[in-house]
Structures are given as C-alpha cells and as structure tokens.
C-alpha cells in the first residue's frame, strides 16, 4: 500500500483513441499513453488542459481500466453542470486530440494485492470508476476473493458499465452485485428501490459469507457519509473503510 515514488511522475501527451457514451451523463475516453505505465486498480491520473492564453485547468480522474500490457487507459468522465473540464471532454474533445496527463497517482484507495479476504465495494454514479478498475483487475487475474458491489444510481440507465457488471455476476459465483436505484423501480427483485442504509449493507454482507476486511466507498461527500454510516451500522470497523470523495 505504501508507495514511495523514486522520482517525479512526468506529464505526458496522450491521444484520445476512442470515446464511448456509457450513460446519459458519462462518457468513457480511451487514451493511448506515450509513456506507458502499470497502475494499481484504484489509482488516478491528473489531467491538464491548457488554453491559448496559457491558462490551464487540472483535474484528477480515477482510472477505470486495469493495468494490462496495452498502453491504453480508460477514464469515465461525468458531465458536471458547472464542469469546466468535464464539459470540455463531453462537448469538445474528439478522437485524435492530444491531452496532457500524469500518473499513476494515489497510494491509499488501492485494490489489495494479494486479495485474500472478502472485499466490499460501495459506489454511486461515476464513483464506480475506481471500483470498476478493482473488479476488472480481480477478474483479469482470475481471483476468487469474495467481492460485493453495492452500487447506487438514480435510474437503471444511469448504471455505468451495467452490461459488464451483469455478465460478471452471472459467470462468477464469488461476485455479489446489488443495485440501489433511488429514483425509479429496480428491474431485479434482488435490487433495492431506496438510498443505501445499514439494513441494505447488512443484507449485502450476508451474501458475502464472511465479513470483509477491506471496504472501499466512492462518490460524492454526502453519498460517502450515508454509505459509511450504513457500513458502520452493519457492524463494520471504521479502520477497514477507505473512502474517496469527489472534490471541487
């Protein structure tokens, strides 16, 4: 978990190779790294945009892909109402554009390697992104560690990576997937039609067989507070809970 970087993580210019509309508000952007790196699931990159007058804007985005040997990373970016950078990506960026980024960054919100004890993942909206990198890494490495994902979304069509998650759920008995749909009726009987609470976390934990020793929660600050309270009410120890909150 501890990461002591020997040297500065350099900026690099990366071409956008593919753009995929994932949900009404989230698009995936695939970047071909000019200086390829291997990251740990959960890490992020900093992205820097520069205007002709020299003004630059920087934001951090979690990496959605797992570290395969291919020199491409996927970022899933939500279009925010006042988002200077996210609106550029959604409205302006095109395949072939060169974007500056640096990474991998972050040494806390990381998939445990080796993954032995059960893991609980809780996310909302684009807060799924670092959790998805973890789920993809686990799957790509054929890990059998019991893992549960409790994912909150407004409606079924707001569920990021929905098809992929459902297909992992079907093929992997050690992967538990529950949706909390807050503004619509859920499609499946095993899903919930309310915000996350302690009872819900407890029911998802019951499907994990053993108590998790690591919990990762990602989303807006208000969501993370609600989900953390739920996890604590379900009897989990605060010291095993790692959180990542969107900021500014």
């Amino acid at each position: 978990m501890t990461e002591n970087l020997a040297q500065t993580v350099p900026w690099q210019s990366c071409a956008i190779t593919e753009i995929v509309q994932q949900t009404p508000s989230i698009k995936s952007f695939f970047f071909r790294l000019s200086k390829p790196f291997a990251h740990i699931a959960g890490q992020h990159v900093d992205v820097r945009l520069t205007a002709p007058d020299g003004y630059s804007a920087m934001r951090s985005y979690s990496i959605a892909s797992w570290a395969i040997s291919s020199p491409t990373i996927e970022l899933a970016i939500e279009r925010l109402p006042d988002g200077e950078v996210s609106q550029f990506f959604h409205d302006v960026a095109a395949i072939g554009d060169e974007i500056e980024l640096r990474g991998p960054l972050g040494g806390h919100f990381l998939w445990p390697e080796p993954a032995i004890d059960p893991v609980l993942l809780i996310g909302a909206g684009s807060g799924l992104v670092p959790l998805m990198a973890m789920i993809r890494q686990r799957r790509a490495l054929a890990q059998v560690v019991p893992t549960a994902l409790l994912l909150s979304a407004r409606t079924a069509e707001d569920v990021l990576f929905s098809e992929e998650l459902h297909s992992i759920e079907i093929s992997d008995p050690m992967f538990v997937f529950a949706l909390a749909i807050t503004r619509d009726q859920p499609v499946r009987a095993s899903d919930y039609a309310r915000r996350i609470d302690g009872v819900m976390v407890q029911e998802v934990l019951a499907r994990l067989y053993r108590k998790p020793t690591q919990v990762f929660i990602c989303g807006s600050n208000s969501f993370v507070n609600v989900a953390t309270d739920g996890a604590l009410l379900a009897g989990l120890d605060p010291s095993i809970i790692k959180t990542e909150r969107y900021g500014g």
């Binding site: 945009l49 520069t50 003004y55 500056e100």
Partner: peptide, 23 residues
Amino acid sequence: MVTRGFTGRGSGGDQSNRIPPGQ
C-alpha cells in the same frame, strides 16, 4: 501544450494573482 478547443473559464479575473498554478 495548448489543448485544441479549450478556452477555459478564465483565470479568476482580478483575483488571478491569488490563485496558484493549476488551481
């Protein structure tokens, strides 16, 4: 490196000298 099509919101007008680079 200038990013194609990015103009930005501006650097904070007369407060720009109070905003560190990249913020």
